[in-house]
Design a protein around this nucleic acid. Structure first.
Length: 567
DNA sequence: GCCGTTTTCGGCCCGACTGTTTTCAGTCG
């Protein structure tokens, strides 16, 4: 898919136009970039159908440019723009506090083209002599350069969850903190988080600011205002906190949860209905009409309530206008978890310990799927050990009150076959099949490999369908559209793998698969008892993909699950 | 360059914070 590639080019064009001081056009290109980015389908298909102008933000001229790029692999307009500018925009833009105006000014005055030039100029104290710049600007940029060079990757949701809970708990203790909630991408349940955004209601914002800027592990206070401050922790994490009045809570939450594109779209909708929306409330002229809670604002705008996970301006507003937002699956809907490992392969707890942990978590079932096959690094089961494994599971069943499913996570081999016969696979409750090795195939080969397995073996669940590892390993090349269709046809549940660094399928993929009519299974892929708790991450992905409890196997009743697993 | 329940022309989300100023431009979210 060229979607992201094209979105990036449109963004770059916007950057260059902005640098040239052109107004509004950059915004048009950015809107188009967001439209392309949010597409659920391959842009090439739209191009072939002549439907590029149906993309939000794409009109006649941008459609022509996209066509040219798809057709020829090049874009004249973009190349000409790039020739005109001499600076490394992308690089300089990364520095906090550096924007198009300053980049242009610094190039005109000091011929600064990139970070290296900037560093040199600062060392020679050249910047502070310029109008509008000073010594502290120099220091800010220097720190910014350091930050860019040692830039932390985006944080995993699971790694920030304890910090979010701790800060919320600590702040709630103080009587001057009436309310505190997390907003931003964390609240939207994204798999990775850039920074944390907290929202607080208090009559004494000064005290809150003081408390906030005195958090432990702060490396630097980035901004300290009367109602809004930012800090950076020693681990590189930025945290923003804003204090609002009780009356503004709803409008502020809406604003702070975002995302930005969603906010802009809602504000535009408000405008079209004669209102003005900001973090301070919904206004008719100068009159405040709503803002105490989010529901009031949605009601005034004649919108169905939109769950935070859906807020990214990818159709949720249109759906809410027609009351078509489905009831999203919740953590409480999850009755049990699939795809768990034990000491029998590469896990670190016994079958019994894992089952007891699941029972203690009030789950109604657990499914054991230790590795089977050639993945030697994971100490896989073979046919002989599988017999003992199943006997052991039988013993565990007598010691816990929850349903214990037997099964394996079996490798999908290079040619699309599995290392166990159809007959033996049918004796297992739950067969998870997944690709683990020989992952560097072409898209066509990989797609055929996975589809062939689903067509020829009694597979219940296709494990981690793209095999990505966030921040570490890209997904393998595979035509998911095709995989979804074959999965649907063969009644294979698609896994939403909930392991913190996996979270595969992603929300976007879940949504695409739902459109095909697929069903899902939430797998914890736990390798110890601690990891069992992370099924909420899978729920995040499911919710971001618009899934309801009807779409997720884990939410069904046990008799219905057993029936669905029959091969 | 895009878009339309007042518009095919004339708008384009909105406000806080910072640094360098003395009233504001630039950046950020």
């Amino acid at each position: 898919m060229k979607n992201l590639e094209i979105a990036k080019i449109l963004d770059n064009i916007a950057d260059i136009l902005e640098l040239q001081g052109i107004e509004f056009k950059p915004r048009a290109y950015r809107n188009a970039a967001r439209g392309v980015e949010n597409l659920a389908e391959d842009i090439k298909e739209l191009y072939e159908k002549g439907k590029l102008e149906e993309i939000p933000g794409v009109g006649k001229h941008i459609a022509e440019k996209i066509s040219e790029y798809i057709k020829t692999g090049r874009l004249k307009y973009y190349n000409q723009l790039k020739k005109k500018i001499k600076v490394n925009l992308e690089e300089l833009n990364l520095i906090p506090g550096m924007g198009p105006k300053k980049i242009k000014f610094l190039y005109e005055k000091l011929k600064i083209k990139n970070i290296k030039d900037l560093e040199k100029a600062i060392k020679k104290k050249k910047l502070q002599k310029l109008k509008g710049f000073g010594e502290s600007t120099e220091q800010d940029f220097l720190r910014g350069i350091q930050f860019v060079k040692s830039r932390p990757k985006r944080f995993l949701y699971a790694h920030l969850e304890p910090i979010v809970k701790e800060i919320t708990k600590q702040f709630s203790k103080y009587p001057f903190v009436k309310k505190i909630e997390i907003a931003g991408s964390f609240r939207r349940g994204k798999e990775t988080i850039g920074d944390l955004d907290f929202l607080v209601v208090s009559n004494e914002p000064g005290k809150v600011m003081k408390l906030f800027t005195a958090l432990p592990d702060i490396k630097r206070v980035l901004a300290k205002g009367t109602t809004k401050s930012s800090v950076r922790l020693t681990n590189g994490l930025q945290i923003d906190l804003r204090v609002v009045k009780e009356k503004e809570w709803g409008s502020a939450l809406l604003y702070f949860i975002g995302n930005k594109q969603h906010n802009i779209a809602v504000r535009k909708l408000a405008l079209s209905k004669g209102y003005k929306l900001s973090e301070y409330g919904l206004f008719k002229g100068k009159k405040w009409v709503a803002g105490r809670n989010e529901q009031d604002i949605f009601k005034k705008l004649k919108l169905q309530y939109i769950e935070p996970e859906l807020r990214q301006n990818s159709g949720e507003i249109e759906a809410a206008l027609q009351n078509k937002i489905p009831p999203l699956v919740t953590v409480q809907n999850i009755n049990g978890v699939f795809h768990n490992h034990t000491k029998w392969s590469d896990g670190s707890n016994t079958l019994l310990e894992m089952a007891q942990a699941a029972e203690a978590m009030k789950l109604k079932f657990i499914s054991f799927n230790d590795h089977f096959g050639d993945i030697t690094i994971a100490n896989p089961l073979d046919e002989k050990r599988l017999v003992s494994y199943l006997k052991e599971i039988e013993k565990v069943r007598k010691k816990v009150k929850i349903r214990v499913f037997s099964g394996v996570e079996i490798d999908i081999l290079k040619n699309g076959s599995l290392g166990l016969s159809v007959k033996k696979l049918k004796q297992l409750d739950v067969v998870v099949a997944a690709v683990h090795m020989a992952t560097k195939m072409s898209e066509k080969e990989m797609t055929e490999r996975v589809c062939r397995a689903m067509e020829n073996y009694p597979i219940n669940i296709l494990g981690h369908p793209t095999n990505r590892l966030i921040n570490t390993r890209p997904p393998y090349q595979i035509n998911l559209e095709k995989v979804f269709q074959v999965a649907k046809k063969n009644n294979v549940f698609l896994e939403i793998n909930a392991a913190p660094e996996t979270q595969d399928l992603s929300g976007e993929h879940v949504r695409a698969a739902l459109k095909v009519g697929c069903k899902f299974s939430l797998g914890t892929d736990a390798h110890d008892t601690q990891n069992l708790q992370f099924y909420n991450l899978g729920v995040n992905m499911a919710r971001r993909g618009w899934a309801t409890k009807k779409d997720i196997l884990n939410c069904w009743s046990l008799p219905r699950i057993e029936k669905a697993l029959k091969k």
